[in-house]
Write a protein that binds this DNA or RNA. Structure first.
Lengths: 323, 323
DNA sequence: CACCACAAATAATGATTGATTATAGAATTC
DNA sequence: GAATTCTATAATCAATCATTATTTGTGGTG
């Protein structure tokens, strides 16, 4: 039924199927089955797609409220939350885990005492794997360039910034370009890391060859290296948040040739996400947005507009320490 | 979801499951799965059944309109009928087939030109089998004493009456009892026939032993024998309709120890009946009721009350000849 | 207290559904 | 006329759901 409505909107089996996270023949079959069951044609087939017959239009009118009600019911039940329970296991890429889990796990524990949460950290690729096999209910990952078989939902975009020690001898120029980083000794995540892949791709597109002197996958360690040596790095802001807040390092936004990484949450396309899992997701994304917002305040040059003055207003931003 | 609402009403898994044409563990599993998905208990389990929690009540309020709308949508789509199409194959016990198919097939053909109808005749038992294997969309059968695995819906009850030649030498008494039939030479359907089973059971309950001199399963032939010889029989009225209308035989209602057979339509419990099939079913049941009504007019003694005078009003009832 | 009766839950197996890959057919477009 | 784009069909494979058989738990009864 969902299928039918989606197709009715898209008027194109292939596209609708993609949107529904299934393959085209599956949709074709379901639709023809539906038509057989109702004993009437719902679509007029043409080469530029499928268009509703009058019967199809009638069915849209009849079924639209149903899915609307169903969606509403789901949400209502989720909000009935005091008693939400269940086992929820999530996977997070390290940057997300580092910046959210301390606070998020506490929030979940207090707000949903009957949820048993299990969070694990891992590389995008392995997390996708865990989700696929059902070991994880969902995962927050870097959007992979390659198609995954999972249902993905965008969470946020985040800029990757240059970072080095506070009093680094080599000062980055005011208008920092990505290719300037060749002048620094770099410490970066290994190739197994999604962030590194993004950097490599970006560099390759600009004809640069990234050759870090050091490769480190554990972010706290990496930050520590930055803070205590003259190494520099390029990381998303939230990964640097702790160190930025403590004032040991500083971060510079690129003026052009910006690098952006996107975070998405993924789940098994044909397994419904429990309300408990959704609740956990909400908590984490909320904390993640929070973390990103505060982290962004430390990056130089300050963003133009309201944000900038806002940042200047408080030199020592408080941060939630809820763990 | 249907399951949930049904259980909410019944408050008893076993009974609800029976009503849903599934077995008890199936329902148990589905419900607990639903609870896991929503992360909250929907029922309080006790020994005298299951009672809704507040969350369960909330879900009832939320889902009841959905199934209502869905049911409404089904019906609407069915009524949008001009264009109903599809292949429909039905099975009918002989008595029903004889009295309806001539007219019903014509009606279906004219009213639903895009339905391809295939009707077959058979014994209750074999028809049930065909339905089970999916060779038939549904069947009209005698309600079997044994449980079938099919979903059954009552269609009509019908009296079985004594019948013999118009000028039979042995006149049946005014107040006919079932055990009187032992005085006649009987021709009855064979033991393979559902009607015969009903008669045998009825006879056994009364301590009578039915020993027909002749066994015939083809109803027209049987009627012919009745009309042309001194044999007598006991059959449901509609099976005798043709011969009664032509005046060659006469039928007598039993005064006591009545025999009633029930007709039901059955379909695969987990296969949805297409609207085309439903349309065909409607036509057949309508014609069947019609046939039963006209057939009843010929049976003696006339029924008391309104019916009786109605019958007397027209000695030569017209009958639809639509074939 | 053992025993039975009844209701629901669990486990193992089996059938049906639905998704997937691969492929074919029909209609445009270049 | 080859390539592209869209939908439909066929065969295979996985997951869901239902079934039978069995177990657990609770209350009534001799």
């Amino acid at each position: 039924m969902q299928y039918f409505l989606c197709l009715a909107e898209e008027k194109n089996v292939t596209r609708a199927a993609r949107q529904l996270n299934i393959v085209q023949p599956a949709l074709s079959m379901q639709i023809s089955k539906l038509e057989a069951e109702l004993g009437q044609k719902l679509f007029d087939r043409s080469v530029q797609g499928m268009t509703l017959t009058s019967a199809g239009e009638a069915l849209v009118r009849l079924t639209a409220p149903i899915v609307r009600d169903a969606e509403y019911a789901r949400q209502e039940m989720a909000q009935l939350g005091g008693r939400i329970s269940g086992r929820v296991s999530v996977g997070l890429i390290t940057s997300v885990a580092q910046s959210t889990m301390a606070s998020s796990s506490a929030t979940v524990a207090s707000r949903y005492p009957e949820i048993a949460l299990s969070a694990c950290e891992g590389y995008t690729e392995t997390l996708v794997d865990w989700v696929n096999t059902g070991q994880l209910d969902f995962a927050l990952i870097n959007v992979p360039r390659r198609k995954t078989p999972l249902a993905a939902h965008h969470v946020m975009d985040e800029e990757m910034v240059f970072a080095c020690r506070k009093d680094c001898p080599i000062k980055p120029p005011a208008k920092l370009r990505f290719d300037h980083i060749a002048n620094f000794d770099l410490v970066l995540p290994s190739k197994r890391h999604g962030l590194r892949l993004i950097l490599d791709e970006h560099a390759a597109a600009l004809g640069i060859d990234l050759r870090p002197r050091l490769e480190l996958d554990t972010l706290p360690a990496l930050c520590d290296v930055i803070a205590t040596t003259d190494f520099a790095t390029v990381l998303p802001t939230i990964a640097l948040r702790q160190s930025l807040a403590s004032g040991t390092i500083r971060a510079h936004r690129f003026d052009e040739q910006r690098v952006v990484r996107s975070i998405a949450w993924v789940h098994h396309p044909r397994r419904t996400v429990s309300v408990a899992a959704k609740a956990v997701l909400d908590v984490i994304t909320h904390d993640l947005a929070q973390a990103a917002a505060t982290a962004k305040e430390f990056v130089e040059p300050a963003l133009r507009g309201a944000n900038s003055s806002y940042r200047k207003a408080r030199k020592t931003p408080r941060r939630k320490t809820r763990s």
